[in-house]
Write a protein that binds this DNA or RNA. Structure first.
Length: 198
DNA sequence: CGGGGGATTACCT
DNA sequence: GGTAATCCCCCGA
């Protein structure tokens, strides 16, 4: 089973919700590591002040303007990487940030070793953490996610709308009113709890 | 070409 | 809750 190109062509907001429950898997020379996506954020390209692409194309964000279904990986705070799924029509500059995974079923020991942490909740409960656990770095920028060593795999179980929560995006200083963060309700693996909207 | 700041995390009080 | 760590992107000059 495999995701199709059409899956990645739905609107960025829909895709951010549809990615919940899907598996992100990295097959590296060190071994396979994967986890089920439980938290995402949508970034809406030109005009979304919180988006890297808000002011148009630059060398760093160029892949966001390319076709959907590819990886956008960037370096942040001098020590972490963040992984995104490029989305939206070509030229839109949109993407979905993957913020948290339930670690497993492959590679728990490898992830513990990479993270230098033993607790399951410390492995993938944040965008920087999950990249470290899966061994995702700048070399994994601009790769197809439909096939190859870094892939997104479909849900094994369906998820209902009631299981999905939305909230404000985290760690940004503009456009904070938009409800573009999505999570699986009550998951202990979220990067941060969702607070009831006001 | 300099400098501010960042889609974060860990560790401290 | 506060803040250091630590690179590099990007804007303005």
């Amino acid at each position: 089973m495999k995701l199709t190109r059409e899956f990645f062509e739905q609107s960025t907001e829909q895709l951010a919700a549809a990615l919940l429950g899907c598996r992100l898997e990295h097959r590296s020379p060190q071994g396979v590591a994967s986890g089920v996506i439980v938290e995402t954020e949508a970034y809406l390209g030109v005009g979304d002040d919180a988006c890297h692409a808000s002011r148009g194309m630059t060398p760093r964000n160029a892949v966001m303007f390319g076709p959907p279904g590819r990886s956008y990986v960037y370096f942040i705070y001098g020590m972490y990487f963040c992984f995104n799924v490029v989305s939206g029509p070509v030229g839109s500059g949109e993407a979905v940030l993957i913020r948290a995974l339930v670690p497993g079923e492959d590679g728990i020991s490898l992830m513990k070793e990479r993270r230098k942490k033993e607790g399951l909740r410390d492995l993938c409960s944040g965008p920087g953490k999950l990249c470290e656990a899966l061994g995702i770095t700048r070399e994994h920028n601009d790769l197809s996610l439909l096939s190859g060593s870094l892939r997104v795999l479909p849900r094994l179980q369906p998820i209902s709308q009631e299981e999905i929560v939305a909230g404000s995006r985290i760690g940004i200083s503009s456009a904070t009113h938009l409800q573009l963060r999505f999570g699986l309700k009550g998951s202990p693996y979220l990067s941060k709890q969702f607070t009831p909207s006001r």
